[in-house]
Write a protein that binds this DNA or RNA. Sequence first.
DNA 1: GAAAATCTGTTCAATTTGAGACATTGGCAA
DNA 2: TTGCCAATGTCTCAAATTGAACAGATTTTC
Lengths: 229, 229
Amino acid sequence: MKVARPAIVLLPPPPAFDVEAFLDRTGLGRTLVELKKNQVLFSQGDAADAVFYIQKGSIKLTIVSQRGKEATVALLNAGNFVGESCVAAAEHIRMVTATGLTRCTLMRIERLEMVRVLHEEHAFADLFVTFLLARNVRIQEDLVDQLFNSSEKRLARILLLLAQFGKEGKPETVVPKISQEVLAEMIGTTRSRVNFFMNRFRKLGFIKYSGGLGGLEVHSSLLNVVLHD
Amino acid sequence: MKVARPAIVLLPPPPAFDVEAFLDRTGLGRTLVELKKNQVLFSQGDAADAVFYIQKGSIKLTIVSQRGKEATVALLNAGNFVGESCVAAAEHIRMVTATGLTRCTLMRIERLEMVRVLHEEHAFADLFVTFLLARNVRIQEDLVDQLFNSSEKRLARILLLLAQFGKEGKPETVVPKISQEVLAEMIGTTRSRVNFFMNRFRKLGFIKYSGGLGGLEVHSSLLNVVLHD
DNA sequence: GAAAATCTGTTCAATTTGAGACATTGGCAA
DNA sequence: TTGCCAATGTCTCAAATTGAACAGATTTTC
């Protein structure tokens, strides 16, 4: 597989509305989907007829170009929707591939059901719109990051975001080890480049490899890289 | 001003629902805003308390980085919303600057009014969600474009999109002349680079300068640049 | 535990891009 | 017409990035 070029989108904080209880109550999320680590939920090109709500775990969205390069477009936490773009029009096709970054539990909501409930439940509709807007902002930030910053800064930014991503407990630590290859996919550069910067950051004490299982400590001083002129 | 780095987002086709009549009927869009060419609707950092609906003309969204670089994040046609992100939470701040690319007529809708009507009118809510999803897809495409393609291909893509942008009448023509400077802002590179590629495209017959008033004909053969391995 | 499959550290030449400098050109206004 | 000014066409040089290759380290699998 060719080297990839992509960027990442880490998504918004959990909603202030108990979605799971709601989905449960309305029977909307009756269909539970379990996903193993690295298992594919749906692939680019598949027919799109359902939306998913992440109950547990995180999901990676990727896109493959014609030339076989792969880009990671977003990482989604629990509390986010996946495959939401099919809500707009029927007969849509998946534009991305969704893969479990970890083991996941998802609620599957059929498109038509989703539309119906969005009409009937204000709170749920609000939540969905809020999610869409947040996602919008995030993708736009990633785009701007690509436009303004060098790959070194992009890497630093992603590492900082990742450090917060798994913040259920220990701070300043990227929990699931992400390979340099994937990091390269996320910021849109090559692995050798990522490796180069990672070592640089390490020498400068901004990050530290800890624990044999690929733990990575991200020190907040890494912010210097992003903020520096 | 420093050289800029940005990318563009050309937005979706007009809705299948008469928004203007609707806004008119409900009194929602009672407040009309006229915008001259190059006039600023709102600036990055302003308080955000209203959404706008473009009735006529087109709007440019830009972001300025700390170092003074400028990026064009989107071009919006009639039939699109502007400043929609404030719908989510009160007390928001504009993250972009919206400027009239041409003379514009906009309908101003106060945030609270917008929220209220979204709850009460399904058709309008559907339209809005559809708009958000389309915008999402577009920004993501731009992000992916940045990740996968070289600046030459990005320029080709933008030119092709622009050729469709003003497709009210003559096909294959970028109507309002856009300076190489702005093009550079849109694809995230420098003007001299844009100039270089423009001349190359011209020599290869992919585009043609026509009419003294900066008309630019974009030939569909320019697709070769985008599709070529 | 050994083989197989992944990651990582490193190097390097070939390209691509960034950032400016400068000369021209075309349109507009006094 | 003349002069101003923004938009263009060119060029150059340094820095950033790509792409590929390889060996060593680490993990996974059987």
